[in-house]
């Protein structure tokens, strides 16, 4: 796989006239795993949404580029085909569309119209991925995310990651709702993709537990809509042990959420 770089510079994002991101800088390259941590409501999901092109958010300043190409100029589907992927914190439920049909459409969207993935090949790939993620085969025929448990939704997001093979993936709280065994299964799968494809990844999480399975190269802390501290894997361990108070003290932050001006 060729070297890919996602570069986020001085990103400011608003929703309904509220500024939520206030200048985020972050660069993710192929093979690199970045963890983003931080208290609730500090802008982590907003960052993920802004990169993918969520319709509710407005970019007011800054840039996002993928290998130098302006991501902000791209439609959501173009971003995906350019190599971006977002495992969402709250995936949509889509009634009447089976998971299998959806996956097939997603794969075919990356291919020429007359060169759709042959059905048998698709089924084989999907069955393999379902097995690896210990997902019941029936799920493929169920409507996308409809009535899925919290953990099933998360596994389904990783199923998609595995089948679509993006260059850069953002995983937003992929560990929430997963039981301990599922966490291991999902982590193994992500590590597998990391090794096979040289995936670059931004992992949003609240817990060191996930990072025990998926070792990050970098750890960033978000507060007030900015990355306020970065470090190596040891930073996450320190957060797990000590919480966020010390960072707030160190930086003189009283309210870490985005509501308050810094």
């Amino acid at each position: 796989m060729s070297e890919t770089t996602l570069e986020i510079k001085d990103l400011h994002v608003e929703i309904e006239d509220n500024e939520i991101l206030k200048g985020v800088n972050l660069t993710i390259k192929s093979g690199e795993f970045h963890a983003v941590m931080g208290p609730n409501g500090t802008g982590k999901s907003t960052l993920a949404s802004a990169v993918m092109g969520h319709p509710s958010f407005e970019i007011t300043q800054g840039s996002i580029t993928l290998n130098g190409e302006d991501v902000l100029e791209m439609e959501v589907d173009e971003r995906a085909r350019a190599g971006l992927f977002l495992a969402m914190q709250y995936p949509s439920e889509i009634s009447g569309v089976t998971t299998s049909d959806f996956l097939r459409s997603s794969i075919n969207a990356r291919r020429e119209e007359e060169d759709g993935i042959p059905l048998m090949q698709f089924i084989k790939t999907m069955d393999g991925a379902l097995d690896e993620l210990e997902i019941d085969q029936n799920m493929a025929q169920r409507y996308l995310n409809e009535g899925f448990s919290g953990g099933e939704k998360k596994r389904n997001e990783i199923l998609q990651l595995k089948m679509l093979q993006p260059e850069i993936a953002i995983l937003d709280e992929i560990d929430s709702g997963l039981d301990i065994d599922a966490l291991r299964v999902v982590s193994d799968s992500i590590n597998g993709v990391r090794e096979e494809t040289g995936l670059g990844c931004l992992i949003i999480t609240h817990y060191q537990r996930l990072l025990n399975y998926i070792t990050p190269d970098f750890v960033h802390v978000m507060m007030q809509g900015r990355i306020v501290k970065s470090g190596g894997p040891e930073l996450a361990k320190q957060l797990e042990a000590e919480g966020y108070e010390w960072i707030k003290e160190e930086l003189g932050i009283e309210d870490e959420t985005v509501g308050q001006k810094a």
């Binding site: 092109g53 589907d77 995906a80 949509s92 889509i94 997603s106």
Partner: peptide, 18 residues
């Protein structure tokens, strides 16, 4: 829903069709 489908690379027209 459109955003979710498009975020997997599915075009706007195809997402709407689905």
């Amino acid at each position: 829903q459109m955003y979710y489908l498009q975020s997997r690379g599915i075009t706007k027209d195809e997402a709407e069709r689905l």
